[in-house]
Design a protein around this nucleic acid. Structure first.
Lengths: 503, 503
DNA sequence: ACCTTCGCACCTAGGTGTCAAATT
DNA sequence: AATTTGACACCTAGGTGCGAAGGT
């Protein structure tokens, strides 16, 4: 418990034992995959719902049309691929982490200077018109008109009064890559990690102004760029050509100091900038410490550079925490994976190291059309030529820093004649050649044995960091994933909060 | 000399005594203010000139026209305001620093991973069509087809062979704010500080690929956004609608390690990221140290937060090095100010502290149309409303952190309903109320007496940093500038290399 | 009591030149 | 002998929660 604020310690008994909050558990299928999408008109009143479990209405405007489609289709969950081709879809990334927080009761700190969100809103968009220009924007809407207070002895948020939100004009955060072609938007994870929340109503920095002790939910807007309008100055949503999406699990309560210490713990555990507050843990032997502590580490954090699995000419990177699904925290807060066909829960691949997951499985690029920009970059200059060129390269060897794909500098990628590829400048990922099979149905822990048996076979050295920046080395045997598995993992990208890198 | 590489120490005797290189001194008027501007066609061969002294030809295409103007006007220096209204002009910022380097013989390190330029190319553009969309881009052209080597005992660069540059396709770095309205481009300093140079011909990060030991010169391109073309993928310059500018003083030689230790010294002295290599200096008394060492500090660097002078409701910030014009280095390398009517040489106001000069003289904004974005941001959301609103505020008091104008987060400013103002998030500048007059003809050192007389009158505390991050305080008496002085200072913006902040 | 603010230590992320070693 | 590379210490810049202090 070291490192938690005295405030968070007070009174909260239930919080300490990890009792799930008296919050309706949101079914997986109603979250993430089928967010609320609605035709958004400028100046329309906020959508309000006391119950944050999602009614998955989907009233999306047909992409590319100027007029709103009055007969917007309604989709039910589990109809994963039934959507018409040109129906704009937005999928929340890092949903598992959001759900972890949501179960406890997400809190977001707001300050005068502005505070980033953690987790941040990150989405993937589909079915845009590749040639159409779009703006992508985010705002934060009140969930209700209530003021809340946190009751420590019951670890609950209680209504404490009413509020009028109308006095503050909501601010729209336009993604800095805007405007950009649909093709480019779809190729990257769209990250809103630079968004800052403030309680300063006089804010002049363009931050999103919220009131403390209130409930909010972010929305993402896909805005067709109408060349007749000057959208370079957009400050509110246009009346038409806008798709809006909300994700129930991203609801949060604004605070100026954390109330629930479970939230504090999870933030410290997952936000790399809060590493300094993690339990230091003992300095273990290279393998012993790894094998003993890692699957059960709880608040102790060992932060690994991502694994990389190479498979028949296919390179796959993933985070080195495939065991967190059986960690005490996970048991405490049993939020099952939203996609049962994934061999591991997605949260098992969340990443805690800022340098991690900067890389992209390049040979899979043409397969998956997933790019990993180093910052919110549109992959304008990305060309399939790059993939082609690199596909011809020999398999990469372990122990090599991989400049395979490296991040572009600057906000948007420089435009170069040669194809520009995205990836990691600083991380030193390592390839683990693939030998032994893991079935697509294999659990997360099926990766573990490969670490426990360190003596045999070719192995791979890779670096990871302790909280105190110690550099250690771990030895891992080779492993293998099937194509299916690889594909699944790729489709649900691991996520890093400060950069918007993903698989 | 501590901290200089052994390499730079070797042989170079003349370098040590600061002998000006056997380089033709470029007259002030031929530099900076009237750069080479030419109609640029895609695929045209690089402009080559063995003599880097500038022939100030100006063959600019009339802004806003799709067709190149065949009768491009030629301007001679000193015709400052004779240009037709719609003639695009590009002015190099930080020209004084560039000239300091140029006199010695600018070297730029190139690495496999990519290295930033120092100084970086920063320009201000004029006479764009406010409503027209433009791309702004930069590339680096070979000055000749020679390979050079540095001769230590004569501190000179000598031709060492010939090279064929044609094997490397030059890369175009498109400014990340592109595309953007002319109005926005003109309102900000356009900084190319994220550009990276590399010697890796296989670079896949979009960096500019150069060959070591060769001479190059950056070019800046203003590209009309033709809506008929998809410029989001531009990788080479279009055939028409392009204005290109080059600045003789930005010529440099690429190296993998510095050759001339004067260059090393100047880089260390001016680049905030190299602060760790500056001579530590003794910890002086607050005022003694200030007054004794500062004007003559040489390699010793004290880095101050910027001064701010308040004048009849007008706030003016400037760097705290008005004495460097009489420093030994300055004497050694007597590059006079390019604008003789300035009361101080411009280099006198160059800034060494990363936190400095983040602020903007707000009430002067409407006068000068100069904005100081915190990063290469277009000031899209900036509105004169902001200036109006703030002009009504009471005078700011000393000892107060100034959130007057604060930086927008993210690459481009979020679009907000309230006017967004640009300035500094982290710096703590201080206002020096203005009482005693300084004549417009006053020299830089005329500011000094106000610091030496610390006992009387109201004073202002401000922070500055030692190389070892010590925080000290200096006391300064009030001073006053005339409106003329203020205006002059504002028009030639001090510059900070890593951020593109300016007055 | 409850909520907010501010300085702080401790991180991430990445830009410097240095120096020893490798490369050519 | 000249040039390049890479690990390194030391910076800038800024994102964390902490905890004392302030405000209501």
């Amino acid at each position: 418990m070291q490192g938690l604020s005295s405030r968070a310690h007070a009174f909260s008994v239930e919080a300490l034992v990890g009792k799930p909050c008296k919050r309706m558990k949101v079914s997986d299928s109603s979250l993430n995959e089928y967010p609320v999408s609605q035709m958004k008109k400028a100046g329309s009143s906020p959508r309000r719902s006391e119950d944050s479990s999602c009614d998955p209405e989907t009233l999306a405007v047909r992409s590319g049309s100027t007029e709103a489609d009055p007969g917007g289709e309604e989709h039910t969950p589990k109809e994963s691929d039934r959507l018409p081709d040109r129906e704009v879809r937005v999928e929340l990334q890092g949903s598992e982490l959001w759900k972890r927080f949501y179960e406890i009761g997400t809190e977001m700190i707001i300050t005068k200077a502005g505070r980033r969100m953690f987790p941040s809103v990150r989405v993937k968009v589909r079915n845009l018109d590749p040639c159409q220009q779009y703006y992508v924007a985010m705002d934060v809407m009140p969930v209700d008109s209530k003021r809340y207070r946190y009751v420590y002895h019951s670890s609950q948020w209680m209504v404490a009064g009413n509020t009028d939100h109308s006095c503050i004009s909501p601010r729209l955060y336009v993604h800095p890559d805007s405007p950009c072609a649909g093709e480019t938007w779809m190729r990257q994870v769209i990250s809103f990690d630079r968004v800052k929340l403030t309680n300063n109503e006089m804010d002049d920095k363009g931050h999103i102004i919220l009131q403390s002790m209130h409930k909010y939910k972010p929305r993402v807007h896909i805005i067709r760029h109408d060349p007749r309008m000057d959208l370079s100055q957009i400050q509110s949503l246009p009346a038409e050509g806008v798709h809006s999406f909300a994700f129930p699990e991203t609801e949060f309560t604004t605070v100026t100091a954390y109330q629930n210490q479970q939230i504090t713990k999870l933030k410290i555990d997952r936000n790399p900038f809060a590493k300094g507050f993690r339990d230091p843990g003992r300095n273990r032997g290279v393998l012993d410490g790894l094998l003993e502590s890692y699957p059960w580490r709880g608040p102790l954090s060992l932060d690994f550079k991502p694994f990389a699995v190479q498979l028949q000419g296919t390179v796959l990177y993933f985070s080195s925490q495939p065991w967190s699904s059986v960690s005490p925290l996970k048991t405490q807060l049993p939020f099952s994976s939203s996609s049962s066909f994934y061999p591991f829960s997605v949260s098992a691949f969340s990443c805690q190291d800022a340098a991690a997951l900067h890389t992209l499985a390049l040979p899979l690029y043409t397969k998956t059309s997933v790019v990993s920009p180093a910052s919110p970059l549109p992959a304008r200059a990305f060309s399939s030529l790059g993939a082609d060129r690199l596909r011809g390269l020999p398999p990469l060897s372990p122990l090599t820093d991989l400049p395979l794909l490296s991040a572009l500098q600057g906000k948007k990628p420089p435009h170069c004649r040669d194809p520009c590829l995205h990836g990691s400048p600083g991380s030193s990922p390592c390839l683990i050649p693939v030998h032994s099979p893991i079935s697509p149905q294999g659990s997360a822990s099926s990766l573990l044995p490969h670490l426990s048996d360190a003596a045999a076979g070719p192995y791979c050295l890779y670096r990871y960091s302790f909280p105190l920046n110690a550099q250690l080395a771990a030895i891992s045997r080779h492993s293998k994933l099937t194509e299916d598995t690889t594909d699944c993992l790729l489709r649900q990208s691991p996520w890093h909060p400060t950069t918007n890198h993903c698989l």
